[in-house]
């Protein structure tokens, strides 16, 4: 039996060995976490595990005991969207949107661990999330706007 929390809710699961977190999440309706490749290169399978952006397709469910998993589903509360989501829309950082949840998680994990991230830091974390639509120009811009608004300044 493995016990962990997803978006604040504790779950206890007993699954066959080899089940990945991605399998589990998609089966349970957390559809913001997506398949992009088998080795996690695309990062469309990103989740936050204890605040850090990780590839759900590379995490076996039984290794998650006691961990705290977050997906983008937890970011908006009712009709209120997270400011990072809002900035992504405002800046035109979303095209097809397939990579968007992964990008938002990557930026959010950076924002939590680094108070004054630079544009280079943003590009570094986004390197783990492939986007074939935007060329990363507007996502990076959106991230910087969000971080500046949040922290008052960046490095």
């Amino acid at each position: 039996m493995t016990t962990f929390t997803i978006n604040g809710k504790t779950v206890a699961v007993d699954l066959r060995a080899g089940t990945t977190l991605l399998d589990y999440l998609r089966e349970h309706g957390f559809f913001s976490v997506k398949y992009g490749s088998d080795k996690g290169e695309t990062g469309s399978d990103s989740v936050l595990v204890d605040g850090k952006s990780m590839n759900a397709s590379l995490m076996l469910i039984h290794t998650l005991n006691g961990k705290n998993v977050e997906t983008v589903e937890s970011f908006a509360h009712g009709r209120e969207v997270h400011p990072l989501q809002d900035t992504f829309i405002e800046e035109g950082a979303i095209q097809c949107g397939y990579c968007t949840p992964g990008m938002i998680l990557a930026i959010e994990s950076l924002a939590r661990e680094n108070e004054l991230p630079s544009e280079e830091d943003v590009k570094d974390v986004l390197a783990g999330v492939y986007c074939r639509c935007t060329g990363y120009v507007k996502p990076v811009k959106a991230a910087m706007h969000y971080l500046i608004a949040k922290n008052g300044d960046t490095r």
């Binding site: 913001s32 983008v72 908006a76 989501q85």
Partner: peptide, 12 residues
């Protein structure tokens, strides 16, 4: 479609 996509809604 921006809001749905930003929120990771099940639209795919």
């Amino acid at each position: 479609d921006g809001l749905a996509l930003a929120k990771g809604k099940p639209v795919f």
